[in-house]
């Protein structure tokens, strides 16, 4: 119970910030003032080093109040979310059956390829034996972007002024920097499965810009032959459409492979019936081993 007064103070500050950002900033500045004053007083009676400390404290106080104002403008997306396409029961299998799931997964659909890539894609799909083998033997513990956004993993969204974090139950994290920085330049940028993401807020909509996604990654598990080039450019517009639903418009531009931009609309529903994130991993007790091209169950 000792934490209650602090919690009340934080709540009061948050409410004030939400209601009137300017007032909240003033409140914060006033609250920080005694500390700055004390530091300044000490500085006048002591060394230059102490004066420098006081200056830093004053800057921090100013930045802090601006940050609280920024914080107050961000939407509240707390809670746990999951792709609306997925509904897994305690068997770990899709509740509506695999066919129903497949029909819901938009990244499983044929991309709007240009003629050259459409031919490659269709030719790959004709190799039914290769497709069956991949489907019968795959293991997927992590996902590349954008498949991560249409996977079964629950995730949390932490919106900070400097960045938004999408924290998935399998430990994967997307960092979306919203502090105005550009993508890394030149050789400081290299392809990764999640790519490099920066973003900005347009009102209550988070606009995410992602580049440098590894080209050799299939678009999604089971979409083994759907590839993009390493110049693919992704734009996501993420917003809340009701209390329990987030919606994302995902636009994929990739002139090297696509005849036109590929625009998908993904939805995420609020996870109910749980009170915390339960982490997922594939190393604690993985009894599904791939031996001689076959998935087996090992003894406990």
């Amino acid at each position: 119970m000792r934490s209650v007064p602090l919690a009340v103070a934080i709540l009061a500050l948050a409410c004030a910030a939400a209601a009137a950002p300017t007032a909240a900033a003033a409140t914060t500045a006033a609250a920080a003032a005694p500390t700055a004053t004390a530091a300044t007083t000490a500085a006048s009676a002591a060394t230059a080093a102490t004066a420098a400390t006081a200056a830093t404290a004053a800057t921090a106080a100013t930045r802090s109040s601006a940050r609280v104002t920024q914080f107050a403008r961000l939407p509240d997306w707390t809670g746990l979310w999951v792709s609306a396409a997925w509904s897994l029961g305690i068997s770990g299998r899709p509740a509506g059956g695999e066919q129903e799931l497949k029909e819901k997964l938009q990244l499983m659909r044929p991309p709007p390829y240009n003629a050259q890539w459409a031919a490659k894609y269709q030719a790959a799909l004709q190799d039914k034996a290769a497709l069956a083998t991949r489907n019968a033997t795959f293991k997927a513990c992590t996902r590349s972007f954008p498949a991560l956004m249409e996977g079964p993993q629950q995730f949390q969204i932490a919106t900070l002024p400097e960045e938004t974090l999408l924290i998935f139950e399998n430990g994967q994290v997307r960092h979306v920097y919203t502090d105005g920085r550009p993508h890394p330049a030149g050789d400081d940028l290299w392809p990764t499965p999640l790519g490099d993401s920066i973003g900005h807020w347009e009102g209550q909509t988070l606009v995410i810009d992602t580049v440098a996604r590894t080209a050799s990654e299939p678009l999604a598990p089971r979409a083994w032959f759907a590839m993009l080039s390493d110049a693919a450019h992704f734009t996501e517009r993420l917003r809340r459409i009701d209390a329990d639903t987030l919606e994302e418009q995902l636009r994929i531009d990739d002139p090297a492979t696509l005849a036109a931009p590929w625009i998908l609309t993904l939805q995420f529903r609020r996870v109910t019936g749980v009170n915390r994130m339960i982490p997922f991993d594939c190393v604690e007790n993985d009894r599904n081993q791939l031996i001689d091209g076959k998935l087996i169950i090992t003894n406990p």
Partner: peptide, 16 residues
Amino acid sequence: AGALMAPALAHHSGAM
């Protein structure tokens, strides 16, 4: 048909 249809499971194929 099921094997070609792509089984779905979070961690590994369900074809086994």
